[in-house]
Design a binder for these strands. Sequence first.
RNA 1: GCACCCAUAGCUCAGCUGGAUAGAGCAACGGUUUUCUAAACCGUCGGUCACAGGUUCGAAUCCUGUUGGGUGUACCA
Length: 476
Amino acid sequence: MVEYSSPNTNKPLHLGHVRNNLLGYSVSELLKANGAEVFKVNLVNDRGIHICKSMLAWQKWSNGETPESAGIKGDHLVGKYYVIFDKEYKKEIDALKEAGQTEEEAKKNAALIKEAQAMLLAWEHGDPEVKELWSKMNGWVYDGFAVSYKNLGVDFDKYYYESNTYLLGKDTVEEGLAKGVFFKKEDGSVWIDLTEDGLDQKLVLRADGTSVYITQDLGTAQMKYDDYKMDESIYVVGNEQDYHFKVLFLILQKLGKTWATGLHHLSYGMVDLPNGKMKSREGTVVDADDLVKEMIETAKQKTEALGKINDFSEEEKETLYHNIGLGALKYFLLKVEPKKRLLFDPAESIDFQGNTGPFIQYTHARIKSLLTKAGYSAVTTTADLSISKTELEMIMLLAKYPGEIAIAAKGFSPASLANYLYEVAKMFNKFYHEVPPIIKEEDTEMRQLRLNLSAVVANILKAGMRLLGITVPERM
RNA sequence: GCACCCAUAGCUCAGCUGGAUAGAGCAACGGUUUUCUAAACCGUCGGUCACAGGUUCGAAUCCUGUUGGGUGUACCA
């Protein structure tokens, strides 16, 4: 099982989510290619104080605005009110600070946050009005996410919702107490002592008996296992949660869950901008939808400038721009080792030349064009031919393809495969340039051999790129 | 304080379980098209692999320490 994406339903997706989505999708495909049966799941964080903030702001300031009436994608509309909440909240904090309160006091005492907390409580008590608003706004967000996911080309076999799982885990806590893995403090809170493992004491249940994050995850892990009985489960989550997952997995092991040994945290680094981290509230985020749109637009401009596809229909053109734009974006994000942080400079748009997605796509298109012009059909050559150094090196490189998939799958890392595919494409271009025109080759055996080689390259590029979630065009 | 991650060319990154003169792309400069797509190819320039020790016949790679950057360490998620 691969769990990825896992968005909050209070704002649209940004570049960080894009990295997560592409990684999760690609790792799933890699595992499939390596022989596993894979389930892709999305654990949606659809409840909590952050959702209530958007809801409250919408209630107060929207005049009943909807995605339809505003002509805004649902997730963006909800995100807009999340930002408005934060702005108004800050105003209140400033006012309270001027009245002499400390920052901390002001944050707690602001009327807005109290209202949001009251709303969360009402939600938990099943208040019909709050629940209805919650369903409505989450619905908008899901419609928006569906579009983003479709554009990114990612999908899921199953969705889990925190509104259904946030109460889980209490049984697990009971189990842990019974087994003596957990202990209860005087105030009734439940803890586990991990100091012998070099970690800390960790709370697993509040004194008032309610769940915390890890309680919920313990329960969800159990539920997912009960649902699928998978022997491996991968969580694609950013590296700021390394500690959380270390603790989670350790607790499950101590509880004697044999399946806990199959749990992995695919930890990836933050996406940084040149001026530092992305912050949703400060508007310094690269929006996923905007980014995709820009990539497609860039692909369009570059393609039109080259003028090679003037005979394409409008629909074919749109498809091509989409494939190239997303190919550039996906390759850019996937070629870097997941655990490394990634720098994205919006000013320097993603390249289309050199070690890039479009370069590999171009190589594929070029080969397909060659094969078409040559009237290629796959026939094995039998003659004893002498081949060039480049041809030999290329054959050696191509032979490594199955091994590369295994390496990438075992390491949960598309990066090595991405770089391998680049090597293959580069090698082909070198070969293609060195060798005299293949179509005009008079030695039919040699001609066939070179076409066969080219065809193998095209197949590997196509299959390999597919594992990265990238479509290679026939022409570009 | 403690824990985890990262540090390789001006910039962005490769470098598998230690193996020969450390590789790409971008940027800069120069060249290649009457030949199968120039989103390509070839060349020049550019590195004390953060620093200091250690292990080893051999270290960018393993160990220790130092420095720098990031993250975490909530009865938030």
